[in-house]
């Protein structure tokens, strides 16, 4: 089984790129692969706890929690990008880590594939 590293800059709601990347992570995990998922820039919005599900908006908190429960999915937010947007440790969804950008580059080192969605 392989390792996929996904990085995304796109926001929750506002863009469907984040939805696509989570769907891809689900497909990879379902096939037995492991996924490192990196959120930077506006994508750090996905780390926020307390997201409310409305039918008119993307709701990714639940799929992220389901992925985390598999033990094959690591999700990390850029700590500076999150803090700049007012998302601090106490605002972060359970299971989501926070590191600086070098964590992402280190994750690419052992990745079999890297998919980077650098903003819309």
């Amino acid at each position: 089984m392989g390792k996929l590293t996904i990085g995304c800059f796109s926001s929750l709601v506002g863009s469907l790129s984040l939805d696509f990347s989570i769907k891809l992570a689900e497909a990879a995990v379902a096939k037995g692969h492991t996924v490192d998922y990196w959120m930077s820039g506006n994508a750090t919005m996905l780390s926020k706890k307390g997201q409310k599900a409305f039918k008119d908006y993307s709701h990714l908190a639940k799929p992220v929690q389901t992925l985390l429960a598999t033990g094959k999915f690591n999700i990390t937010a850029c700590e500076a990008c999150a803090a700049a947007r007012g998302y601090h440790k106490e605002d972060t969804m359970e299971g989501v880590k926070s590191f600086s950008m070098d964590w992402y580059l280190a994750s690419t080192f052992e990745a079999d594939r890297v998919l980077h969605i650098g903003g819309d």
Partner: peptide
Amino acid sequence: KTEASRLALTHAISSQSV
């Protein structure tokens, strides 16, 4: 216009501490 090019540079620079 967006943050993408700045993030490209800051992520690339972070290779120095990886």
